[in-house]
Design a binder for these strands. Structure first.
Lengths: 245, 245
DNA sequence: GCTTCTATAATTGTGTACAAATAGGCTAAT
DNA sequence: ATTAGCCTATTTGTACACAATTATAGAAGC
């Protein structure tokens, strides 16, 4: 697992110095930047400065650019000469096809090289469940995003098909920002509650060693989640339906 | 479609000069190098020299390295400081998971955003069918590889799900070298014949506008092809079963 | 006031020199 | 003869300077 919560600038610079190979340094940069993009530290539309980032990390533009190029290939950035490096926008309509594909791939998780469920795996899901329960009682946007990411990575453990992992991960990071961008604060608690239920259901399925059931539950929730997002988007600006505000 | 047959060095250098944007230049480099790798112009294990390639294309190492980095991310190259840039080996065992995933994705081609079959599409498949028939009467390794690639790209037209395209393309280029590396000359003609039958069957399905059927046929052939490759590999070195040699 | 052109500032792309790392050969000691 | 250590050539990685490109602001003309 390489999903460290994002660290302080000095820590990252230190890690980069301690890294022995160029590949290690690249991975650090890549994961840190991807995390910042998906946690909306750099919201969609943000312009990044190669020089500023290089200075922050204590390196030159060359190794930084490699990380930026891969992020661009993954659809999270877009660089253009004379313009800048911009964090891509997330649009639900454009992401519909990605969502469809993700749903199908999730079904494959239960079919292609399914992992044998052991105690460690059950525990990993339970840990997520506990965190979700904690989050339910004190919802926060960043906490929700972080848990969503971590849950995805635990779910990945259910299949041992490496190409499937790679593909699913790429697609996940293309879509995960949509939640933070579309869910208004007033709906955060209810979304967290839904997420909590999903995690509980899946944890239960895993506890009974039923990987296929877990995959089906997840697929269903992906589908429902997308539909909620669609409703959220079409209704945005039109109302705040509850009488609170 | 960006699959030009590989061009002469001077042509490529000229194209690079004529290109207006950096992205265009990158794409030229990427497609040319990927094509050379998959056509086994650079066989697995080949060491590429950044400097030599840069000289050949009349550019510096910087833009070349971007193309190499993406090819490395796609699993076709591997660079290491002090060692070199090596074309990755293709191993059937490692590719088994990729093949499994490709089979499942092919089924999705018929389900996710299937294209409406029109005259142009039917004609595109028929063009492949004709080329396959020509190849059957004069089999050649490079001709087989080229047709296999072109057929893949035509098949991609059956779905309009762009993420599915991207994923399928990446996986295809990870596997397509296996044919040229495993099929001995003596079996080339029979493999071409099998391929010819597949193309004919699929072209027929497309002619009747049945995308799902085409996808199922392709899936079946992928499966059978993998099994033939497995037999090929396990039997390699043990024999040349026919009494010719 | 509006438009259009130009100059300028800011940003990424490219070229190049040098640093870091590795493999392979050579030498010397056992 | 073999093995360990070192040295050198080769290759990719990094830093940096400069070129190419673009957006923006300002001035001039209408």
């Amino acid at each position: 697992m390489n999903d460290k919560p994002d660290l302080d600038t000095a820590d990252i610079a230190r890690q980069l110095e301690e890294a022995t190979s160029a590949q290690e340094r690249f991975q650090i940069l890549f994961f840190v930047l991807r995390d910042r993009i998906c946690m909306l530290v750099y919201p969609p539309g943000t312009q990044l400065s190669e020089e500023a980032l290089a200075n922050e990390f204590g390196i030159s533009r060359s190794p930084l650019r490699k990380a930026l190029q891969i992020l661009e290939a993954d659809g999270l950035l877009r660089s253009q000469q004379g313009v800048g490096t911009l964090v891509t926008e997330v649009d639900l309509d454009e992401l519909q096809q990605v969502y469809q594909l993700r749903m199908e791939l999730n079904e494959l998780t239960g079919k292609l090289s399914p992992a044998t469920v052991d105690a460690a795996l059950v525990q990993a899901f339970d840990k997520i469940r506990v965190r979700a329960d904690v989050l339910r009682h004190a919802p926060s946007r960043s906490g929700f995003a972080r848990l969503n990411i971590d849950f995805f990575h635990v779910f990945q453990l259910l299949s041992e098909n490496q190409p499937l992992h790679d593909v699913a991960e790429k697609l996940f990071y293309q879509t995960c920002r949509i939640w933070l961008t579309l869910i208004p604060d007033q709906d955060l608690a209810s979304e967290v509650a839904v997420f909590c239920n999903e995690v509980e259901d899946i944890a239960k399925a895993i506890a009974t060693h039923d990987v296929s059931a877990a995959a089906l539950i997840r697929r269903a929730h992906l589908s429902m989640g997308f539909k909620r997002l669609r409703r959220q988007k079409s209704g945005a600006g039109a109302e705040s339906t509850d009488g609170a505000s």
